[in-house]
Simulated scan of single mutants.
Amino acid sequence: MLSKQSRKTVAALVAGAFILAGVAGPLAVQAAPTVNDRPAYHQRHQVKPEQVAKRLAKEFGIEQSVIVKYQNQGKTNKDLVRAAFLAKASDKSFESVITLKTDNNTWQDVANTLGVDKTKLKAVRQEMAAKHLSQRLNIPQNDIQALFNQGYHQRDIAMAGLLASHSNKSLSDVLGMKKINNTWQDVSKELGVDLKALKQEMKQSHKTQENG
């Protein structure tokens, strides 16, 4: 099996070095997310407010000054991300969504008000993940989305793409090598790929995303 650090690095590439490295939380990460779950990287990464504002602005097309305004009002990173994600899922403005959240309701209540269910959240999460995986793996976004539609998980697509880039195999060929009774480490050995070197590349990719 992959080492603990390798699994963490894979998760960072797939879930998260994808946008907010520790801020994105459940809306952007889980296969069937709910809006009140505990973030996957809670307390593992400390992201500066200006980094959060910059990344949210870039990822969701929100004016950075608007995000800063709500940061100055004391909104947490989790609230900002959830509002941005629900705004995208509901095709509403960021400000109209974040103002729906009060001390007397939950983000699940806000999602219900907006008519956003798990299916919509999953669709947006997959769209965003496909975009980021496409950029990192140099694979057309539509091809990544097609793999999601076929039931492949983010981690498997990411691992297959990375192993394909280190071998003479196509993404589909590598995905086909992964069976229910083997691991990605087994696949990497079969391909003659140095998993340690692969892990280092993924670490560097994560650092680049965090500093971007």
Rank of each mutant, 00 (worst) to 15 (best):
D109W: 04
A83M: 05
A17R: 08
A84F: 13
G115D: 14
P49G: 06
V110S: 12
L13C: 07
Q71I: 06
E95Y: 02
A31S: 14
A24R: 08
A84V: 15
Q51T: 09
V97D: 03
L56E: 03
D143A: 11
Y152Q: 06
K131M: 09
A15M: 03
N104A: 15
A84D: 15
R7Y: 09
K118T: 10
I180S: 13
L171H: 03
I67H: 02
Q51N: 09
T119Q: 14
T106S: 14
L162T: 02
G151A: 03
D37R: 11
H45D: 15
K169C: 00
S96A: 12
E190I: 00
L137W: 02
L195Y: 03
T34L: 07
Q200G: 03
S167I: 14
K54T: 08
E63T: 07
L163C: 07
Q51A: 08
K203A: 10
S6M: 13
R38E: 08
L133Y: 01
V124S: 03
A12G: 05
L100G: 11
D186Q: 02
Q126F: 11
K92P: 02
N181I: 03
Q209R: 07
L27K: 01
F60D: 01
R125P: 05
N211S: 12
V47K: 05
A111E: 06
